[in-house]
């Protein structure tokens, strides 16, 4: 047993280890291909946009409702799908491929709420669900409302509503 432990001690002390550490880490870091990332984000984002447009036209044609109502129904459908896939555990593997193509559409907003609420499930209904649902999506709402308040007053002053 003692011999077994001795073989695993560093031979040249900690200095050598620290110097080598950075070069070894840099060598084994996965190189991110930025061009491929950009292309994947472009394609997935575009597909979601075209899918949203398709849903809106299909809803307004088949359900015989106005374009505005169909747009609301389309956004609700996208939110529903994002929540469902997050809860089933698929969304993270999709996001590894699609990157920001899935975060910038409304699906990212729904995903941030669903993943926050699922992560804190074991802390109970009040301190788990209630306290953490806006943990990630809160920043979008906060800065959106602050910006909309300021820009709304500016627009009211310039254009009168």
């Amino acid at each position: 047993m003692y011999n077994f432990k001795k073989t695993f001690q560093p031979i040249n002390g900690d200095k050598m280890e620290q110097q080598n550490y950075e070069t070894i880490v840099n060598k084994h870091k996965p190189k991110e291909n930025r061009l491929l990332n950009a292309l994947l984000a472009f394609l997935t984002g575009g597909l979601i946009g075209a899918f949203g447009n398709f849903l809106q036209e299909a809803y307004s044609y088949f359900l015989d409702i106005s374009k505005n109502d169909a747009a609301v129904l389309m956004l609700t459908t996208l939110i529903f799908l994002a929540c469902l896939f997050t809860a089933l555990g698929f969304f993270d593997s999709f996001a590894k491929v699609g990157k920001m193509g899935l975060i910038i559409p409304i699906t990212g907003f729904a995903h941030s709420m669903q993943s926050a609420i699922l992560d804190y499930k074991k802390e109970g209904l009040i301190y788990g669900f209630g306290a953490n649902i806006f943990r990630l999506a809160g920043s979008v709402i906060l800065y959106g409302v602050v910006a909309a308040y300021i820009f709304g007053i500016i627009r009211y002053a310039i254009m009168g509503g």
Binding site: G45, I48, G49, A50, G52, N53, L55, Q56, E57, K67, A70, A71, M74, L75, L78, I104, P105, I106, G108, F109, V140, G144, V145, A147, A148, F151, G152, R155
Partner: peptide, 16 residues
């Protein structure tokens, strides 16, 4: 068309 409503920028637009 509706593609402009899908990204999160439309959230800020709809707030205003």
């Amino acid at each position: 068309g509706a593609g402009a409503l899908v990204p999160i920028t439309s959230f800020g637009h709809l707030l205003v």
